[in-house]
């Protein structure tokens, strides 16, 4: 030991000191409740910091419940917005000296209980039916856009023809220009849909938004559908657009069924007109 340099010797002594002290403190902590508590307080405070970080992961389990609450609130707010905008329209119409239309959209919240995205004709089933005021041909929307149309209704369940159904056609409108075309699913990718029959003179840029039609009786106007990815000219006559859907149909859980109070009347009117023209 005397052969070692002084500094090293001092270092060894220091290390020995620390080792012995560590043993002593470990003994102290392991064998006495109070000291254990005091040390654990410090350890716990570190733990708290750690837990705070990890709690964001554990909170994930509560997301479902939170989602549900938010969804119901959204439905309520959506109905409120629709009611108020109808009210506003009525006011405007009255000042213009015209008769006010009594129509308005209302929304029925529902939970998706069955869903598919991997077939050619995809359907969804929701947990609300005729008992809740749902009828065939009503539109279905989610927080992010169109979902589909009710096809069959039982007392407590309803079946929805998804937007992702190769048999079904919808009307889509380019928000910027107002040009409308037919929405059709090619049955391949559940994240993409095709908007076709857009007149070729319409200027379309990638990123343009596609929304629902203003003339629709099943969807409220200007419901978002998707974003244009690319466009191509078909047979030299019309444009075909590839549209990325806003809704993720794979994770769809909550939807709103749209009920339009003027639908029946409007239907009757168009039918009589058609009969007369025949």
């Amino acid at each position: 030991m005397s052969g070692l340099p002084l500094l090293l010797r001092k270092l060894l002594v220091l290390l020995l000191f620390l080792a012995l002290q560590t043993v002593a403190v470990v003994l102290l902590v392991n064998n006495s409740y109070f000291q254990q508590n005091a040390v654990m307080r410090v350890v716990r405070s570190w733990q708290m910091h750690w837990w705070e970080r990890t709690s964001s992961w554990t909170a994930f389990t509560n997301l479902r419940k939170i989602n549900e609450d938010l969804f119901l609130e959204n439905t309520r707010l959506r109905a409120e917005v629709a009611r108020l905008s109808a009210f506003e329209e009525n006011l405007l119409a009255e000042t213009a000296g015209r008769m006010a239309s009594a129509d308005s959209f209302s929304f029925i919240p529902a939970r998706v209980i069955r869903n598919s995205v991997n077939r050619q004709r995809n359907f969804l089933v929701i947990d609300k039916g005729s008992a809740d005021g749902i009828a065939p041909d009503m539109g279905v929307i989610s927080a992010r856009g169109l979902v589909g149309v009710i096809s069959h209704v039982s007392e407590h369940y309803a079946m929805i023809i998804s937007l992702l159904n190769t048999d079904q056609r919808f009307t889509g409108v380019l928000e910027k220009t107002g040009a409308f075309g037919t929405l059709r699913w090619d049955g391949v990718n559940y994240k993409k849909i095709t908007l076709t029959e857009i007149p070729r003179h319409i200027e379309v840029n990638p990123g343009d938004t596609v929304v629902s039609s203003h003339f629709s009786m099943i969807f409220p106007p200007s419901m978002p559908i998707g974003r244009v990815l690319s466009s191509s000219l078909r047979q030299g006559t019309y444009l075909e657009l590839e549209v990325e859907l806003f809704s993720d149909f794979k994770t769809l859980r909550y939807v709103n069924v749209v009920s339009y109070s003027g639908a029946e009347e409007l239907q009757r009117l168009t039918e009589t007109e058609m009969e007369e023209s025949l």
């Binding site: 000191f17 012995l20 043993v23 002593a24 470990v26 003994l27 902590v29 064998n31 000291q35």
Partner: peptide, 13 residues
């Protein structure tokens, strides 16, 4: 208390 004398005496040493 276990370790109490040990710790303080080691320091003195």
């Amino acid at each position: 208390i276990m370790g109490l004398h040990t710790s303080s005496l080691v320091l003195v040493g």
